[in-house]
Write a protein that binds this DNA or RNA. Structure first.
Lengths: 225, 225
DNA sequence: GTCTATAACACGATAGAC
DNA sequence: GTCTATCGTGTTATAGAC
């Protein structure tokens, strides 16, 4: 493993665990067992390192999602349930697969969302925008009568629910599991996926919200799918 | 406005805007126009200030939610749609009511979720656990046949979707609005509430996920409430 | 490409005068 | 209850030897 790779790996772990701001370059080089100056040599400064880490980690998941979608599309087996699964299963599996504490990517993304910053925004928008649009289009294809605005809203609701439930199972958190007295196993990716997919599929199947059509007489033909 | 109040207000703004770690005590005292030592005099240290800010801001919203629920309960007008509304409307209204950039509370909570820390966890658990259980019970009351586990899962999905959509409308973000080419107005609390409530009500109405019942013969008397 | 040494500064916290 | 001054430490970043 090259010095550069060691730095990226250690930075990912620490950024996700403690946050960008609470992680010093010294923390990273200590964990990576490299010299402090190596970061500046390979990445320039801390901001560029953050950008590099985000880009390295965002891509693999999106590839999995896009591939899953393309496979369904190629087979002609697109259904609402399968599109939802293609969207939420990869990040859930990825986040909970490895031994123990690897909710790294999702925590990076939640951080970036909670504290919007030019550095992280640019990296995220670039990685996720195209995929988001692809899935919105797919949702419209598989949900008869779904309005375009609704497809966007519900796509966002889905991502929010997914990120939130993944972050819940963190070692230091486990709130849902505790609140439900063990009824909800937030460490089992299969159960999470099943529960989330059922919820989201039903949500997407809800009727559109009638738009107020401001000032104009309302037409009543958009009530049901 | 007392010195202590000035500190709390400024700290809330800066913590939400930049994060706990990226906000220095000097930043806070500068904005509050008080002396640096005043923080240590009134709060002790930075961790205690964070705790105080979280507590001050979490309570009002939960009071609104609990009151809305109690009112419905007292009137005997509990329905699924109204319970969902009681849960999501107060934080959405609160976050988007003031002029411009006041998504403060939700950003604090997302931060705390993305970066679990003993300090913030304690404050949040204390403020939110009782309310969460109250709403879970209510969801079971108004949704015929809803299993207890499902009520917990779907409560979490709802909170996740809500927090995510609120955080989207941030001045520096506005991703959904941009992606949808203006189709989704993430600054209009009424539309957000309508869209979210419709999605969540449908999600809660989904059938329960059958449990595998590991190794033991399954008894069939727990199917319905 | 890797290291040591260090510059230049920001941080939280406290002591002690008023 | 409010201020100044300062301690001790940690921070990013760079210069320069190897």
């Amino acid at each position: 493993m090259s010095t550069k790779e060691k730095i990226t790996a250690s930075a990912l772990t620490l950024f996700a665990k403690r946050g960008f701001d609470a992680t010093s370059l010294k923390d990273i080089t200590t964990l990576a067992d490299v010299n402090v100056a190596a970061i500046h040599y390979h990445f320039g400064n801390k901001d560029d390192l953050i950008r590099a880490v985000l880009e390295s980690v965002a891509q693999p998941i999106n590839t999995l999602r896009t591939q899953a979608l393309e496979k369904l599309s190629g087979e002609g087996t697109l259904t609402l349930e399968r599109v939802v699964d293609a969207l939420v299963a990869p990040p859930i599996m990825y986040s909970l697969q490895t031994t123990g504490d690897s909710r790294l990517l999702i925590r990076l993304l939640m951080q970036a969302r909670a504290l919007p910053h030019a550095t992280t925004n640019a990296a995220i928008f670039e990685q996720y925008d195209a995929m988001a649009l692809l899935f919105v289009e797919s949702f419209m294809k598989v949900t008869p009568g779904l309005a375009r605005a609704e497809a966007f809203w519900r796509y966002s609701f889905t991502i929010g629910a997914m990120m939130y439930i993944i972050s819940d199972g963190d070692k230091n958190y486990h709130r849902l599991n505790r609140l439900s007295a063990g009824l909800c196993d937030t460490d089992d990716p299969q159960i999470i996926i099943k529960q989330l997919v059922a919820f989201v599929v039903a949500g997407f199947s809800a009727p559109n919200i009638p738009t107020p059509a401001p000032l104009k007489e309302e037409t009543h033909d958009s009530k049901n799918n």
